[in-house]
Write a protein that binds this DNA or RNA. Structure first.
Lengths: 231, 231
DNA sequence: AAAAAAATAACGAACGTTCGTTTTTATATT
DNA sequence: AATATAAAAACGAACGTTCGTTATTTTTTT
């Protein structure tokens, strides 16, 4: 049950090609590209290049000519994989959301104690964002491109994660394991600390802090509050 | 010495007009608008509208026709206040950076105890970001528009704030007031929690959490770590 | 040779920007 | 005080360029 990053990384087999394959299989009827291997290869390239340019200069600032040049596909070829720039955004956004949500849901393990549950949740989030940093950063920074209604859905996803922690803490309070008046604020703070890891990658990278070290820190930081008068 | 938001708000007299006035006076030689009152009025409108559109849809997504329409100034008139869209960005970015830095530097008070100093720093940051939320959000989300070199300067500003807290904590460790192995990580976490306040305004607003409540929470949250084995 | 995929070329709309003109405001003259 | 003149500010149509997108042609694969 003891989770570390190496183990998570090994079990986490989702490559960009896997993600592209799943998308192709689900949507092959509406796609003009017939051959699976070609579709997957190019989809993976397109997504990777888009994430890379967007995270550097912004999705709006990326022209399709940029994408063409940096992906090695012609303008015409690109349009075999999406019908508009807006759709390209939606594809990446939706794939990212779904993938992340699925991995999180599947990995929220049933631990023995609530303390373990809390630690486990924090680690899973951090480890996943370590492996899918591009996606997390993109989803966070490019929400502006969504319509008003789509944004609301995106906000609910934010609250969803927060709620997972809130529920653990609430239950802990009932069972008198945790002690705090601010269960929701603490959940919110946890979320902020988890996000900092992928929003400020450059900082932690330059300081040579590993994801495991950071996870330990966050856990300690949070537990110092929840177990304040316990120890 | 006891600081609360109401007091800070009253003492903080900087309006958008004040900021525009200072910019005008500094740059009047290079400006085609001669009359101070006109320049200030329109500069304030331009800045406010740009911040508003940018924070909603993104600076890149804002066309100058949008800005013209929503500010009430014609396309031609706009170009009397800046020489290019890029310059408009730089003007707002630089004014924002300078203003915020100045206010912070001026308000880092010399408190009696280190604990007070820490609390004071947290409050000042939160109160200021409460009053200048638009600017903070803009500066955070639109860094992409800067050149590589300008970005580096921007990152150093991020580290500057962090360092203020790091130094307080370091000193506290020396004097055996605080206790932690992770002074820098805690500073980094403080920064993340302060940023969450203006990055997730919608969330805290909808939960009706006031800036004072949040400040109290952050202080409590941090002190629980620094004073762990003290109480 | 037929089908699929990629590359090329072209289109109209929208962009940032400029500029000749008009409107408004301030100054000078009667 | 009223009028004439000059300066300042605002206007919006038009320019060249770049954008997303589509139609056509070429290349590759089966």
């Amino acid at each position: 049950m003891k989770l570390n990053f190496e183990k998570f990384k090994k079990d986490f087999s989702l490559s960009l090609e896997d993600i592209s394959r799943e998308y192709f299989i689900r949507n092959k009827d509406n796609m003009s590209i017939k051959k699976e291997s070609t579709a997957i290869k190019n989809l993976a390239t397109i997504i990777q290049t888009t994430l890379s340019i967007s995270n550097d200069r912004g999705f709006q600032a990326m022209s399709l000519r940029d994408l063409s040049k940096e992906s090695g596909l012609s303008l015409g070829a690109l349009y075999s994989y999406f019908s508009s720039k807006e759709e390209l955004f939606r594809i990446i956004h939706n794939i990212g959301m779904d993938t992340i949500t699925n991995v999180l849901v599947q990995n929220i393990a049933h631990c023995n104690t609530l303390e373990e549950k809390l630690r486990h949740g924090i680690k899973i989030h951090l480890y996943l964002s370590e492996l899918m940093g591009d996606w997390f950063y993109f989803l966070y920074m490019e929400t502006k491109n969504l319509s008003k209604e789509e944004r609301k859905l995106s906000l609910q996803a934010e609250l969803y994660t927060e709620n997972i922690f809130a529920e653990i803490i609430q239950e802990g309070i009932k069972k008198k394991i945790f002690q705090t008046k601010n269960a929701l604020l603490i959940s919110s703070a946890i979320k902020a600390l988890l996000q900092d890891w992928y929003l400020k990658r450059w900082k932690y990278l330059s300081r040579k802090i590993t994801v495991e070290e950071y996870a330990e820190f966050v856990i300690e930081f949070v537990e110092a509050n929840l177990l304040k008068n316990k120890k």
